[in-house]
Amino acid sequence: MHLPIVFTVLIVLYRLYCALPRRRNAVQHSNTKSLAVFLGSGGHTSEALTLLSALDFERYCPRTYVISEGDSLSAQRARDLESSKASSTKYTILTIPRARRVHQSLATTPPTALHSLLSCIYHVTLARKPFADILILNGPGTCFVLCIAVCVNRFLGLSAPKTIYIESFARVESLSLSGKLLYPFVDRFVVQWRQLLKKAKGAEFRGLLV
């Protein structure tokens, strides 16, 4: 009988805690921002690293490259980009389990995806605080669970990165599956072909980015 009252009081107290000013975080006028980018293998990795190469690494540090389990090629390409930039600032490579393998049937995906989600929540919420100031996503499926982990953080009132999704250059007429999934959840949704603006309201088009 008292349960609803206790519950309500707890929620009010929790939201009050969330609403307290955070002086620790007030020092936000730093000249650097931490950045995380998901490297989804193959063409996704190529595009993400090409985009990243355009950024000022002295400004965006430390950098975290999030790769799927077993994707050593993406890890190597991230290291190659880092050595070509010759920045003195730090980076790390973080490995998470895949949400769905290529050609895996849709029916067996949920348990695989859940495992991946729990791992992402662990990394985004617990393992490092804060995870990053900005998170760049461009597919495929596994980046969705990363985005959901960010949303969980937001829901709990914890620090969470801003999210930017860049739809692949390869998407001309239709959004990718990851694009459709991430569309409601990301802060910025960017497409590279004008035709796609019709498919995603609120999306941004700035010409080709890669």
Binding site: A54, L55, R59, R188, E204
Partner: peptide, 19 residues
């Protein structure tokens, strides 16, 4: 093809991060 021009993406991220 036009050569790779990273300025659009750089502007996008810098803008989002308040630089």
């Amino acid at each position: 093809f036009e050569p790779f021009d990273g300025s659009r993406f750089r502007a996008l991220v810098d803008e989002e991060m308040g630089f």
